[in-house]
Design a protein around this nucleic acid. Sequence first.
DNA 1: AATCCTATCTTGCCATTGACAAGATGCCGC
DNA 2: GCGGCATCTTGTCAATGGCAAGATAGGATT
Lengths: 186, 186
Amino acid sequence: MTETRAYHHGDLRRALLAAALDAIEEVGPAALSLRDLARRAGVSHAAPAHHFGDKAGLLTALATQGFDLLAQTLASAGDDLLAAGVAYVDFAVRHRAHFEVMFRPELYRAGDAELVTARERAGAALRSGVATLPTSGAPVDTDRDALAAWSIAHGFATLWLAGALPNRVGGNPRKAAQEVLRRLTR
Amino acid sequence: MTETRAYHHGDLRRALLAAALDAIEEVGPAALSLRDLARRAGVSHAAPAHHFGDKAGLLTALATQGFDLLAQTLASAGDDLLAAGVAYVDFAVRHRAHFEVMFRPELYRAGDAELVTARERAGAALRSGVATLPTSGAPVDTDRDALAAWSIAHGFATLWLAGALPNRVGGNPRKAAQEVLRRLTR
DNA sequence: AATCCTATCTTGCCATTGACAAGATGCCGC
DNA sequence: GCGGCATCTTGTCAATGGCAAGATAGGATT
């Protein structure tokens, strides 16, 4: 939203990030071209460098944005583990570009301060979603349980995005994810 | 093994694939440079093109090799689901370069004939490992169970490779994977 | 109002890369 | 010995990332 019409002097930074999301959905994060972004935004080929330094800088900004969005998404999904898992998969599918960058740290500056805090925020949201696991009998190892939940949601999302899943899984990721995630929670 | 010393006229193809594995472990599959591979192999910058056509061709060969290796690995892991899961994660860690390419189909020709058969072979090995799920009571949906098992193993492997796991998980992927995968099988 | 100042953006440049074309080299069968 | 073919080299071009130097403009200071 707020598609402000001013690049030439205005919010170029925002426009470039938006263009990057489009481009990544089309060709993937690796094939991203700064010059292509500049063309999409209608500015010169060196304009992006001023806002992000280099390509890694731009992807760092994108990853930070992504972790913030994920934290927000998980928080509003509530405390139910199954719902949180579905929200995680849904996030990956709906914000594919963000998600693909976030988990490819070799493409950005993983030590960047803002990024680190955003990632920790997302991590906290993730753990709080798992804290409500049904403690059915056996001694619980929350860390391992959290990791298992994260793994199954992340794995399903990744396989979905990679197009690795058989056609039979169908076109509704939320439904399919729910059926899969249920295997863990029961 | 069989580090034959003949490139200039010899098994350049094999040497290039080996060099590619090294390079990918160093800089990731996206930053792979054909010219760098040529330098590593001691040949001219255009030599790789003859064997693989282009970069996608080389990565297709690598992915095919990877799926074959995975099929072989899963087959020799036996019929136990937990063992198969651990073998899957172990494969990802030990053959990181192969694994990273295999699940990034935008980098290679996913429709290539040899690749398709290799991938199907790996898929079959995967499913046969899941077929021995403990049918404890409830009506079993094998497809969904298989998908859940694949998801949790794949997710753990992916998170491990991305360096996303907390330090506490430790340096032994097999052990950590086993503890996580157990959450699903019990 | 004139001036400086700084953020923003442009132009120009260079090394690297992927891909292609054309030519050289050497092996193998006849 | 000779032709043919696979293999490899040299040369070239467009695209890209990144750097340097310069242009432009809006705001603050005086």
